[in-house]
């Protein structure tokens, strides 16, 4: 096995181009488990923790947050809780302090598990994933990034550079079902973002389909009903029936399986409940800001 430890982004991309079967290594919280248990013996590890720009975040020219792929969950929570509340809420539910100190959003995207907690908030916030190779840079909408169970849109020579996310323009929520509070892989999860300026609702479903996915029909339904009733302007209470119907439509967007963590039926039911609650909580927050 080779251990490649580039110290610049250009060197990292060159190494990945030369050895496309090298496995990128960020926090190692997915990769090292696989190596420790002999589930994976890659010909090379490509350590990205020495590439400074991956560990930084800043504001892009268009005002969006540019989150380097190697920024840890702990830093998302500590430094970006106000601007990226949905992602920070999800980050707080990841693993344990030790896992959050090491695990990164880029690693979550690299693993592309349907249960990854970053995905619902990234989908709900219309995030884009910036990937790069020696051939160039491209930006992929989160909704197109997840291509199958633990598969993503990366080409073999590409690495994830950053995630681009607009700072929240309205309330965001993240809900996750698991057996206890710490160290839990989601049985099902749901992310919601209200985008009041655009009169749009964003959604993300986790652990209830082969990939993380949005619930577009549900989101359009809720945004449309809010607009029809003039609620975006009046900020009146969210009718209970509307929240319930939204929950049902989110549920209808899922395609879960039965597995050791939960049954498909439980996932569907919990999603409808989480979506209803997330909508109610987010709407209550929206009313308070008035």
């Amino acid at each position: 096995m080779d251990f490649l430890a580039p110290t610049t982004w250009a060197d990292a991309l060159a190494a990945k181009a030369e050895q496309p079967d090298a496995v990128a290594l960020a926090g190692g919280t997915d990769v090292m488990v696989e190596i420790n248990f002999d589930h994976r013996r890659p010909p090379a590890l490509l350590d990205l923790t020495r590439v400074p720009e991956l560990r930084e975040w800043g504001t892009d020219t268009d005002g969006r947050i540019r989150l380097g792929s190697g920024v840890t969950y702990t830093r998302v929570i500590d430094e970006l809780g106000d601007r990226l509340p949905g992602l920070a809420m999800a980050a707080r539910t990841v693993g344990s302090p030790q896992i959050r100190n090491r695990g990164t959003v880029g690693g979550n995207l690299g693993a592309a598990s349907p249960a990854g907690d970053s995905h619902p908030p990234l989908l709900a916030a219309d995030a884009e994933i910036e990937v790069a190779s020696v051939r160039g840079v491209r930006r992929i909408p989160a909704a197109e990034f997840y291509t199958g169970v633990k598969r993503n849109a990366l080409a073999p020579d590409e690495l994830i550079a950053a995630v681009l996310i607009a700072p929240a323009s309205g309330p965001q929520q993240f809900c996750k079902i698991g057996t206890r509070n710490a160290m839990v892989i989601a049985v099902s999860a749901f992310g919601l973002a209200l985008h009041p300026q655009r009169r749009v609702v964003g959604t993300g479903i986790g652990s209830a389909a082969p990939t993380p996915r949005r619930a577009d029909a549900a989101a359009e339904f809720l945004a449309g009903e809010l607009a029809a009733a003039g609620l975006w302007e009046s900020r009146d209470a969210l009718p209970e029936g509307l929240a319930v119907e939204f929950g049902r439509k989110v549920r209808d967007a899922a395609a879960p399986i039965d597995d050791v963590r939960g049954s498909a039926a439980y996932r569907l039911h919990s999603l409808s409940v989480m979506a209803r609650r997330a909508a109610s909580w987010a709407w209550d927050d929206y009313r308070k800001v008035a």
């Binding site: 251990f3 190692g28 919280t29 090292m32 350590d47 923790t49 896992i99 090491r102």
Partner: peptide, 14 residues
């Protein structure tokens, strides 16, 4: 920073 040393590659600690 506290981390699980079982999930850090030794080479990453160089």
């Amino acid at each position: 920073t506290p981390v699980c040393s079982c999930l850090v590659a030794a080479g990453q600690a160089d």
